[in-house]
Simulated assay, not measured.
Amino acid sequence: MQKKITLRKTIAIVKLSLFFIWFWPLPQDASKRKVLCMKLYQYVSILLTIAVIASMTYALIKNLDDPELVIKSSLGLFPCSHVIWNILCHIAIYQRLQCVTFKMENACALIKSHEEAIVQRDYIDKCAHFYGFCITLFYMSLFALFVGPILLDEPLPAPADFPFDASRQPLRAITYIHQIVVGLLIAAHLCVNAFMALLLWLVSARFKLLIEDLRTITSIYDFMKCIQKHQQLLEYAKEVTLAVRPFALGTVFFSTVSLIVFGLIFITGVSLALKIQCVFLAVSALLEVFMYAWPAEHLIYISNNIAQIAFETNWYEKSESFRKNLQMIILRSQKPILVVLPCGLPSLSLHYYASYLSTIFSYFTTMRIMFEEQKDGAGRN
Rank of each mutant, 00 (worst) to 15 (best):
L281Q: 05
H230A: 03
A107H: 14
I227N: 12
A378K: 10
A296S: 15
I87T: 04
V100I: 14
I220F: 10
L110E: 13
M1I: 10
L274I: 14
I50E: 08
I309Q: 09
L350C: 02
Q98P: 04
I267Q: 15
F364W: 15
K9N: 11
A160S: 15
L202Q: 11
A307K: 13
S303E: 07
M224F: 11
I150E: 05
Q42A: 05
L77C: 03
N381C: 05
I330E: 04
H189D: 03
D125P: 01
Q2T: 07
L47N: 01
S258G: 08
G183S: 06
S284D: 05
T359P: 01
F19Q: 09
P149M: 11
H351F: 06
W201G: 00
A51E: 08
A144C: 14
I124K: 04
L338H: 15
A51Q: 09
A160T: 13
E116T: 02
L190C: 11
L47Q: 00
L350I: 12
C108W: 06
H298R: 07
R172N: 02
L7V: 15
P149N: 08
S45Y: 04
K324G: 02
H82K: 05
K72G: 03
M104G: 00
F371G: 00
L171D: 05
K15H: 10
Y353D: 00
F207V: 03
Y221M: 00
T218V: 10
S31K: 07
Y139V: 04
L202M: 14
I177L: 11
D222L: 04
E288P: 01
Q374C: 00
I174P: 12
G377T: 07
V44H: 02
L152H: 05
Y131M: 12
L184F: 14
K9G: 06
F19L: 12
Q374M: 03
V257L: 13
L36R: 14
W294T: 04
L249K: 02
E115R: 02
D29A: 00
P163V: 01
W24Y: 14
N63C: 03
L171P: 05
D376V: 03
G377M: 11
L152C: 02
A59I: 00
S219V: 02
S347E: 09
A54H: 03
R172T: 00
F280R: 06
L202H: 13
